[in-house]
């Protein structure tokens, strides 16, 4: 069962989204609305809340106030189910070290209720260039390979919304180049939000969310 895109427009919205760590506001009253497919870059200096924003959109964090919403086919997806509609890859996404790359992906696919989890896992590994590493334990992968594994995980069930946090980290130049073209490709099929300060990745985006030290963002 894969996502049927095309006629399924996915909209990601933020309404007066505010998040604080303790008393420090990471951003305040952030509002935007993006409809897929397309590419949105989330930019801002370190500590401006790029990762936090993606975590909030992924449903991993509950915002201090305001809300984010994911709408598909006219229906708002409750936060608890959001994970079924998104693909998420971030530096803090860790895999089970004692399981192989393929086992990690098969587990994820199986838990998500997808058909043929192992086959799907293999196919995704091939797509990110890890086909030889299927049976290597996740803790034996280099940081570059681990990053590819994250991207494979994000793509697992063809999600309408991709949230990528610094997707080019740990990749060498060649890796980043193919990543850029890959993102451009995906952007024509789904809504991709990238948190990045990389110029090349940022240039792919049709729209932007700027997070600054003032914490107020504006889609370009």
């Amino acid at each position: 069962m894969s996502a049927a895109l095309g006629d399924e427009g996915v909209t990601v919205e933020a309404r007066a989204l505010t998040h604080r760590y303790g008393h420090r506001a990471v951003f305040e009253r952030l509002s935007f609305s993006f409809r897929g497919p397309g590419i949105v870059a989330v930019r801002g200096p370190n500590g401006s809340g790029k990762s936090t924003l993606l975590r909030l959109l992924a449903g991993l964090l509950r915002p201090s106030s305001g809300e984010s919403a994911l709408t598909a086919g006219g229906r708002t997806i409750p936060p608890r189910e959001r994970h079924r509609w998104i693909g998420y890859a971030a530096p803090d996404l860790a895999f089970y070290p004692e399981l192989t790359a393929l086992e990690n992906l098969s587990f994820a696919a199986e838990a998500r209720g997808l058909s043929s989890p192992a086959k799907r896992g293999r196919e995704r590994l091939r797509k990110v260039g890890l086909e030889g590493r299927e049976n290597e334990r996740a803790d034996a992968l280099s940081s570059g390979m681990a990053q590819r594994l994250r991207l494979a995980f994000a793509l697992l069930d063809d999600p309408p919304l991709l949230l990528l946090d610094e997707p080019g980290s740990h990749l060498d130049d060649e890796g980043r180049r193919s990543l850029a073209s890959w993102i451009g490709d995906e952007g024509s099929r789904r809504l991709v939000m990238i948190a990045t300060n990389d110029e090349r990745e940022g240039a792919l985006a049709g729209q932007r969310v700027e997070l600054g030290s003032r914490g107020v963002g504006d889609p370009a």
Partner: peptide, 23 residues
């Protein structure tokens, strides 16, 4: 479109198997 409600049962089963395997 993502899988529907029956996948909670599959998720539980997948997690159980994962735990056993990790253990």
């Amino acid at each position: 479109m993502p899988a529907s409600g029956s996948s909670s049962g599959r998720a539980v089963w997948a997690i159980l198997r994962k735990e056993c395997r990790s253990e």
